[in-house]
Computed example of a mutant assay.
Amino acid sequence: MDPALTKERAVMRAIRRLVVLQPHGLGDMLMTTPMLGGIRRSYPEVKVTVVCSSPAAAALVAGMPLGAEALVFDPSRSPLKNLGTLVLKLRRFRPDAFLVTPWMTPWKGELLARLSGAPLRVGAQSWWPIGGYTHVVPRAQAVHKVEGHLEMARELFPDLKETPLIFPVPPEARAEARRFWRRFGFEGRPVLGVHPGGDHRNPNKIYPLENYLKVIEGFLAAHPEAGCLIFLGPSEEGLQKRIPQSSSRIQVTVRQRLPVTAALLGQVRVLLHSDTGLGHLAAAVKTPVVSIFGPGNPDISEPRGELTRVVTLTPRLPCQPCVYTRRYPKCRYNACLKDLAPDLVLSAIMEMWRLATHTSDLIPEGSKACTCH
């Protein structure tokens, strides 16, 4: 056997401290959990630190049985100061390996990997490599992010097996969700969940609110027995003023803790969203999901669940998908979403509503798992 290969395998077996860079949103973090869970199961001796960009993503890591810790690093706020602080923390951690998730901005991830001091550094192939990686994985555009993360990790852990995508809901969160349910007047009533917001840094991925309202109006007219629960996050409170609440059948929940949000998602019959992290969280508690995709690519980021459906323009525009291209931030009209008729979205919800199994209570915690096939 090649002596260099033998030495490399010995170094890999000695990995005890791993850093995973995942600076994207809640959905991307959820799609990383099958990899993190696999490391936890197959390599329990490895201590994992996940670098993420939001408190919600950090709460997700802390609330799941992954055996990992989270560091929050938001590159949009005082980037040089925050970067220096992060590098100091990473060097004190003294990682044996550093893994950069495939959809990170190439040169930033490569630079941070190099500055961390880790002897093993894994990342995706970039157009302008700066010598930061010891292991370079070809950038596969058509691979779902769950598989992409696993492929990266197998450079360090060849025997890695994926684990189900899960979000365990604590009993106290389920109890709080039931109290909300009674307050909303939803007991005994099937409910459609809607998340009309999204990441404020990616406004081009959000379906127009006026179209969401048309879909909700059409749905409630067709289902007089049903209610609608609208989910809004910390950066979406401004939308609440634009949502008419003249009917008790429409309720809005704002800024709930992540476990409570997951518990509420477990009680709706179907969730409608536009390519956001809440769709992945709903799938992780076995709630059927209808996802609206415009500039995003469902082939790589559609929620993984037993009942999921993607709604997009058919046929696609020549520029779709564009979210990981230079065209994306320059788009002004956003035709891929603005031209998507509410009737088409409503039809998808009606179909999913018929397929979904209604339950007025939460699924028991032990069964709240959505396997990523």
Rank of each mutant, 00 (worst) to 15 (best):
G238T: 06
T325L: 05
S53F: 02
V194L: 11
A369I: 12
R242V: 03
L313A: 10
A68W: 00
F186M: 14
G109A: 10
V20M: 07
L99T: 02
H135I: 11
K368A: 15
W103K: 15
A68S: 01
L5K: 10
A175T: 15
F157M: 11
W128Q: 13
P329Q: 13
K81M: 07
G277Q: 04
D28S: 09
T134V: 10
P203S: 13
G84V: 02
P298K: 07
Y333G: 00
L278H: 02
V46M: 12
R255S: 10
V289W: 08
E210F: 11
L229V: 09
A175M: 11
L278K: 00
I39S: 04
L160I: 12
A341H: 15
K286C: 15
L340Y: 13
G188Y: 06
T134M: 09
G227M: 13
C319N: 02
V260W: 02
P129C: 10
I349W: 07
P34Y: 03
E8P: 01
V289G: 06
I292E: 11
S42R: 15
R327D: 14
P303N: 04
T261L: 13
V260L: 04
M104R: 00
P244L: 10
V260A: 03
L192F: 10
Q22M: 14
K47R: 14
E176P: 04
A70E: 01
G109D: 08
L36N: 02
W181M: 12
T163D: 10
V290I: 10
A348C: 04
P342C: 11
D74S: 03
R183C: 09
P171A: 15
H149C: 15
F186S: 08
L83Q: 05
L317Q: 06
N204G: 12
S54V: 01
G131Y: 07
A177Y: 07
R304V: 13
L239D: 04
L337S: 11
G366P: 02
W128C: 12
A153R: 09
K205N: 11
V146P: 12
E176Q: 13
